[in-house]
Nucleic acid binder design. Structure first.
Lengths: 187, 187
DNA sequence: CAGTCATTTCAGAATTTTCTGAAAGTTAGG
DNA sequence: CCTAACTTTCAGAAAATTCTGAAATGACTG
């Protein structure tokens, strides 16, 4: 590997974290490399920078494109494919959330739905189904919320996060108002 | 494996999803089994239900306890250790979020902080550092928000999610009010 | 404190995942 | 179409992870 020190440390870290994030070391490193690179890189550049085989880079790029984390970017007068990462970090976050949901949550949601349709044959399954219903309800709320929030543009999303749990304060205020109105009506 | 059909399907699914969730098949299955079980189970119960080795169960339980997803629960007049999962699904969500943050986000945040302290030695590293700063900022907002929200009790958290992106409406309303006040002051 | 029951540890077997080099496939230009 | 540049595929090697059985450890009881 042959990179400036800070870039290298970043790339190595992403390689190490890869397995915890559900990708492999090479994929993590390729992503990190493209992320800090000032210009699109071609496969050979990546081979040189990381010291892994050409075929490994090819597979890694394929996976990253499947995740929508890396985009092909045509460079004029060069036949070779070049690649970059989108540079809006909020967009990256949205992409990551979307893809992880697709891989890690959706399959479970659909299995739960299916199992909740079935008729339990005994007490054990009746209890199991009740537990599944609880889990299903929670995941459902979570994904409904997510479907709502994912549409926010970067700036608004950042604002929402900045607000933090002070949202709760707004909620409380709203509750008070609603309570007040109800009180008046009932009075 | 010897379980009622719905419980079995659930357990098998968790086993399959395990690798995507960063745990192994047995760990996924043990969790699922305890989750749907109407009472705490001991290690031998788990061996019987899942058909894996005793030692594998021991290691799996250890990992699940490290994740705080499974708790030892003493059963009177029984020498053996028994285990359960907490049953509030919102509590489970909080635990999961906390542990995944600890494993998947915190190490990166600390590496980023460290690398941002260093003096870049050339233009490439200067650019790399700028990109890292962008990523750091995004993760920081995210974790600040999370630190806020994780304190909410289950009921309030559910309410927040139920509100969804309508929070944005509140934000807009707030912006309008603030704008109004500013306008008045300036007038 | 010997014996039994329960749990953990750990070395190596089994399995799965990752990575490579060679071969096949694809595309643009002559 | 032929060739050269580039990319992908894929079988098997290498590495990492998961799982097991045997042995060690711990802890309660008579």
């Amino acid at each position: 590997m042959n990179l400036p020190p800070l870039a290298q440390a970043f790339v190595l870290h992403f390689g190490e974290m890869g397995s915890r994030w559900g990708i492999n070391r090479t994929v993590g490193q390729i992503y990190a490399l493209l992320y800090v690179s000032p210009r699109p890189l071609n496969a050979e550049d990546i081979v040189d920078a990381l010291g892994v085989s050409r075929s490994n880079v090819s597979m890694g790029l394929r996976e990253l494109q499947a995740w929508n984390l890396v985009l092909p970017k045509h460079v004029p007068d060069d036949r070779r494919d070049h690649f970059t990462t989108p540079d809006d970090v909020w967009q990256i976050l949205r992409t990551l959330a979307e893809e992880r949901k697709k891989r890690e949550v959706d399959p479970t949601l659909s299995v739960l739905r299916e199992l909740l349709m079935q008729e339990p044959g005994n007490d054990a399954d009746r209890h199991a189904q009740a537990r599944m219903a609880a889990m299903h309800g929670m995941i459902e709320s979570l994904t409904t919320w997510y479907d709502d929030v994912k549409r926010l543009e970067s700036e608004r999303l950042a604002a929402l996060l900045a607000l933090g749990a002070r949202v709760t304060k707004l909620l409380e205020a709203k509750d008070r108002v609603v309570g007040l109105v109800r009180g008046k009506k009932e009075a």
